[in-house]
Amino acid sequence: MSTTTRTPPRDTEADDRPTRFRIPEAAGSIGLRALSVGGFLLLWWAVARAGIWPPVSLPSPGAVWAQLVTTATVGYSGSTVQGHLLTSLGRILLGSGYGTVGGIVLGLLVGLVPAARAVLGPFITFVRTLPPLAYLSLLVIWFGIGEEPKIWLLVIASLPPVAVATADAVRGVAPDYLNAARSLGARSWQLPVRVVLPYALPEIMTGVRIAVGVAYTSVVAAETINGIPGIGGMIREAQRYNQTDVVILGLIVIGLSGLLIDWLLQSADRVLAPWRGRT
């Protein structure tokens, strides 16, 4: 008795279908972004070239580029543009760092202790609704015109987003996780570190990203008071003398460095909380 092997029928339609060239997703995304930036620059150049507004109101991309070369080599208001940027980044790092640590501590208290939630919850919400400029004058009265009011402004601006994100994430911890940890021998004082904090870490990282963004948007307001050196102080100084090309340059520097910082935070999120979306 012989056995015969039956060959499955060939899908002639699939074999005859022409092979399509597929652009990798990453390359396509980069291409679209480059096209978007190029289109914006072309539109900006065309509007400036048409002379709809005078150069003092809308300088051309070439004028802003020339100002970048000048400020990067010769400097502006006693420092180069990279020096101004590094000073502002140092203030943001210090202010948002303190704000993040304080926000995590307050968020854990509000999320875990009902009495703390009743006492601190309204206070955090009250501060979160205040625009930074509303309490900048008060900080200047308290701390003078040195570095202290700038740092405190960024601390107060960045603390509430982290606190709210931490508290909401902590309250969302499933009781089964806590009971499972207790059954495995975890002490009560170990639960916040071993269970609650890892569970809440993805949401905490989201709060940190928001807090750093808020701090970055507040740095210009913080540096309006004796902000030289500083990118916000450079913009303020240029505004006083109607140097629009320097103002636009400062805005571009802030935006690009903000994109880089947000990308770094997203990368840190993937490293510190790889379980995001899996629990």
Rank of each mutant, 00 (worst) to 15 (best):
Q190P: 08
R194Q: 12
A165V: 02
L201V: 10
T206Y: 00
M205G: 00
E203C: 05
P192V: 09
R194I: 11
P175S: 15
V214T: 14
L201C: 10
A174P: 08
L201I: 10
V173H: 01
R194D: 13
I210M: 14
A181R: 01
P202Q: 09
Y199M: 07
P175R: 12
S188A: 13
D176T: 15
E203A: 14
G213W: 00
V214P: 00
S188K: 10
L197S: 02
L184G: 14
I204D: 06
L197Q: 05
E203V: 00
A165S: 15
V164T: 15
V164G: 02
S183L: 15
A174S: 15
A163Y: 06
A169H: 02
V214C: 09
L197D: 00
V193P: 00
M205F: 12
G185K: 10
R171Q: 15
Y199T: 08
A181M: 11
S188P: 03
A163F: 10
V212L: 08
R209P: 01
A181C: 12
V195L: 08
I204M: 13
R194N: 12
D176Y: 09
I210D: 07
L184A: 14
A163M: 14
S183V: 12
A174Y: 10
V173S: 06
L191N: 05
A169Q: 04
P175E: 11
V196N: 00
Y199R: 04
V173Y: 06
V173K: 00
N179G: 03
D176P: 00
A180C: 11
M205S: 04
Y199D: 01
R194F: 09
A167P: 05
R171Y: 03
T206M: 05
L197M: 11
A167I: 07
V196W: 01
A165H: 08
W189N: 11
E203Q: 14
S183K: 05
E203L: 11
A186K: 06
V195A: 04
N179Y: 09
A181L: 12
R209G: 05
P202C: 11
A163N: 09
D176G: 07
D176Q: 15
A200R: 03
V164F: 08
R209T: 08
T166H: 03
G172E: 12
L197W: 00
V212R: 01
A169K: 06
R182W: 00
Q190I: 09
S188R: 11
E203P: 02
G207I: 03
V196E: 04
P202I: 09
S183Y: 04
I210V: 15
V193R: 12
